[in-house]
Amino acid sequence: MAASRMLRKPISDRTLCTLFLVPSLVILAVMVAYPFLSLLINSTYRFSALRSNVEPVFVWLDNYDFLLSDPDLWDRFTFTGTFVVLTVSVQFILAISVAYYLQRDFRGRDLLFTVLMIPMMLSPIVIGFLWRYIFNSEWGLMNFFVTRLGFDAIDWLGVTDNALIAVVIADTWMWTPFVILLAVAAFRGIPVSIQEAATIDGASPFFRFTRLTLPMSAPILGIAFLLRLIDSFKQYDLFFALTGGAPGSTTETVSFYLAKVAFSYFYTGEASALAVIQLVIIIGLSLIFVRLLTRIGRQRQ
């Protein structure tokens, strides 16, 4: 009761605003800003979290130099890049063709749409194991279909290229719904009158789609593209459960490699440097993303 009497005293908007922001600011400062600064500092030392009795040695930018001249890291970047390009383009091609037919109203559309959205909400670790089971070369569902169609059984997870395809299939399964969600929103946001005018002028459906629908949906598809780019660049869980980096270490993403440097080798200094590199890339991409987001937000108001 005492509290409510206290609140009857008018609080200025300024104080209220500060009080409202404090909890979020505190948790984000502790969990993000402080770690980032500490990573920056740690990345200039040579030390291992395992051996706390050994004094850290200040080495300037040696950790960065070491990492950037390490061919292993470039292999991880190349693999991550290949994965990102493949998975994002497959998702967009698939999502745009499905969204093209899902934008119209038909009986049961809303139900179908809702059901199709489910995969992006599921636990990546469960999904990873599920697909690992489906891709098993001996008893997996995938090879059952492959052999039924008259082909030889495929060693999905034992060969690097096949494993890459397997992860792309699983990631596409999970994230195409997200691209469909945004593509349908974009397509439906285009005024019907524009489409009708083009039809009256005799534009073919293909022409209308490539010259009207796609360009007009570009900003929203841009949001989808950047978010998918960022998310697939940092993908960790799915690889952990599906390939575990195998065969060898050929399907390790940058995130995966970072976890290994930090928690298997315990090269804490190098790991901090790699974390900083990864964060700088992500922050760069996020900046572009927020620019696009605020522009669209303003247009919609």
Binding site: L28, M31, P35, S38, L39, Y236, S255, L274, F289, V290
Partner: peptide
């Protein structure tokens, strides 16, 4: 918003 984009593994070292 950027906190949503951070790769978990990167901050985990800390």
């Amino acid at each position: 918003l950027s906190t949503r984009m951070i790769p978990p593994v990167a901050v985990m070292v800390f």
